[in-house]
């Protein structure tokens, strides 16, 4: 589904990703861990299409297409979703209106008619139950005045509504209490099928108790320096990252 080869990315002449490779297949869950500032969010941004970075070399192929040539909204329409580490506020725009606009744009891209109001609201109800989010929240403007945890929950809600093929969750677990964490995991697990994939960026092994990854990667100084199974997360929790130097 996603194939990244020897990717080098910089910003203002500063190299952030230094030859990163990653293969993600449909049906898989990949966890990415690593110290602060090593480029995890940068990787997520590059996949989603943020244009403030320079791609110096390497390639990113998504469903057989050169992802780097696609506009961010086209990537989204083609099934890529990013749960942001820091979701932004959009004052005055209700979550309902925002999601309906997004969903209809995505449907248009796929040659579908706009969703009817009835279908849309039925879907809202279904997904609200799934991620246990209240109407009190979904009736408000996108992220405006939301607590840190509420913002993260809203990201998962949007993911549930948009049903992406490739979802990248950038530290969605940070700032969540244990109950919210379980709900996020439930969201991911119930959306999981053979046809979609998840990249979960996290600092905490704890999340991986609930979302069981097929692979755990360590991103260190712009490269993936180690890949393993679920047990690698425990090892990191115990030993930290120092031992992975060189």
């Amino acid at each position: 589904m996603l194939s990244i080869k020897n990717l080098k990315v910089s910003i203002n002449e500063k190299e952030i990703l230094k030859g990163l490779s990653l293969e993600v297949n449909a049906g898989e869950i990949h966890a990415i861990m690593g110290p602060n500032g090593t480029g995890k969010s940068t990787l997520a941004s590059i996949i989603a299409g943020r244009d403030i970075f320079n791609v110096d070399s390497g390639e990113v192929i998504y469903k057989g297409k050169n992802l780097l040539e696609m506009a961010p909204e086209v990537r989204a329409c083609d099934g890529i979703f990013l749960g942001f580490q820091y979701p932004v506020e959009i004052p005055g725009v209700s979550i309902t209106n925002f999601l309906r606009t997004a969903m209809n744009e995505q449907r248009k891209y796929r040659g579908l008619e706009p969703i009817t109001a009835k279908e849309f609201f039925a879907k809202m109800e279904e997904k609200k139950k799934l991620v246990e989010i209240h109407s009190k929240l979904t009736n408000r403007s996108v992220n405006e005045g939301f607590s840190g945890g509420e913002k993260k929950k809203n990201e998962i809600f949007q993911m549930a509504m948009l049903e992406p093929e490739l979802a990248i969750l950038d530290e969605t677990d940070s700032g969540l209490d244990i109950d919210a964490l379980k709900i996020v995991a439930k969201g991911v697990n119930s959306l999981r099928t053979e046809n979609n994939a998840f990249i979960v960026i996290t600092h905490y092994q704890r999340l991986l108790d609930y979302i069981v990854p097929d692979f755990v990667h360590v991103l260190y100084e712009g490269k993936i320096v180690k890949t393993g199974g679920k047990e690698l997360a425990f090892e990191l929790e115990e030993k930290g990252y120092e031992w992975l130097k060189n």
Binding site: P72, E73, F84, V88, I90, P91, V93, F98, A102, E105
Partner: peptide
Amino acid sequence: ISEDQLFYCNQRGIDPENAIGLIVNGYAKE
């Protein structure tokens, strides 16, 4: 209108033009 707001909309599938329409209408909602 921040780059971050626009990108957030783009990432959900909304093109820049519609994103601006959405953000501006939100701003003027009151």
